[in-house]
Design a binder for these strands. Sequence first.
DNA 1: TCACAAATCAATCATTTTCTTTCAAAAACA
DNA 2: TGTTTTTGAAAGAAAATGATTGATTTGTGA
Lengths: 250, 250
Amino acid sequence: MLTPERQRLILQMIKEKSVVKIQELVDVTGTSESTIRRDLTQLEQEKHLKRVHGGAARLQGKLQEPSMNEKATKNLQEKQQIAKYAASLIEEGDCIYLDAGSTTLEMIHYLPNKEIVVVTNGLMHVSPLLEREITTYLIGGFAKHKTKAIIGRGALTSLEQYRFDKCFLGVNGVHSEFGYTTPDQEEALIKQKAVELSREVFVLSDSTKFSEIAFAKIADMHEATIITNAIDDDTLKQYKSKTSIKVVTS
Amino acid sequence: MLTPERQRLILQMIKEKSVVKIQELVDVTGTSESTIRRDLTQLEQEKHLKRVHGGAARLQGKLQEPSMNEKATKNLQEKQQIAKYAASLIEEGDCIYLDAGSTTLEMIHYLPNKEIVVVTNGLMHVSPLLEREITTYLIGGFAKHKTKAIIGRGALTSLEQYRFDKCFLGVNGVHSEFGYTTPDQEEALIKQKAVELSREVFVLSDSTKFSEIAFAKIADMHEATIITNAIDDDTLKQYKSKTSIKVVTS
DNA sequence: TCACAAATCAATCATTTTCTTTCAAAAACA
DNA sequence: TGTTTTTGAAAGAAAATGATTGATTTGTGA
């Protein structure tokens, strides 16, 4: 990876996330800590960012970002942890299905610099994927305004053209009896089909969605591995009997 | 491989990828590292690129932008006129195919407030269409970074699911003998298919593209109605014998 | 508040990669 | 044929990189 390419990637991540840890940059760029530090030193001298202990931050010169409330920040951090772990599961040569949704969108920052192919139904996902120079296919079909997802009958037939090594889904409910659920029937159909077509299925869900039930069922517990964050021991035990769970810690 | 040919290839790769490694250029051109280095040195002196350790990078045009601006503004106005007229042709209940590209993108501003359905292969087109609350379908397939268009075999089969009342295409060349052409073979295939599937076909082209020929043929003159701007009488007569032309005036 | 452990940092050095320079062979040209 | 230009290879110089070390900062619990 060439120096300007790497530095542009660093600036882009800081632009999007305001702050970024050194370790994140190491993972994303695939270089060493030393190199990242040297980049940060240089970029700071060029007034492109401000170094802080543990990483770097965007310098607020022009417009100040509305500071998120504490909960939103916490949710974002949790999402990032989950997304980061999920991304680490991807291997060279994998064909990936990336579901529409904010958590899977976070994954793109953390995707390894490997030769992979990504298929998605998320309109928001395409640009960042192409920026990362990842081979990207988009499902065809009806464009849903609210979630910027491609859905409908056309999307199903379009999806059937592909097979996946791994599939990463967002959900709204995780329940030991009712399985994985989401509010929109149409989106559930797409997710179901993606599960069918994948060798391994991962559900990305923060712990607040546990024991929740939404309208439309996607799959049973045992059909996917859950990637989640802090969850109490009793709940964990209850779910562990039905599926495999990866708990990401801070 | 001739020197100017090689250097053009280098510039093209940098234009597309922003940065390029020396080894990539060696592989692509089939020449030695020394030759590539000499080319890069020369092209840097001519202010066509910037050398960086390991390769070369595109120089971001503070030098190029202003000179482009005047022309770009004029082009934009012409594009808007053409786009506005094209949009005025759309009727209540129409099913429309909107090709990827900047001129068709302009059309979205001018789309009438009627119940219509739009199918597109342009990634940039989807968000503005949804903002206008227009029923939108996106073709599925490979996402091309440079033009933000969906292309490839999957796109063709995806497109075949639909039929259109009207189809609006951008092109790069309009020639009385060779017909409509575009530089990318893959994109040409999509445009061809769209022509097949449409009752009426409109080509949006400013007059500078007349008598130009690009690599891949889309269709013959008689297969589409041209929507264009100022064009001299002789040229107009020449083309009028082969197709119908709508000339938009300022 | 203090002390201690863990994380992060800057500085340094060996290694690897890339660059420039130089030279001779090959190709193009007259 | 002789001359000029282009090319590829080689060697030493320069730059970038990654690992290591010891110093500094941060967080934690008493």
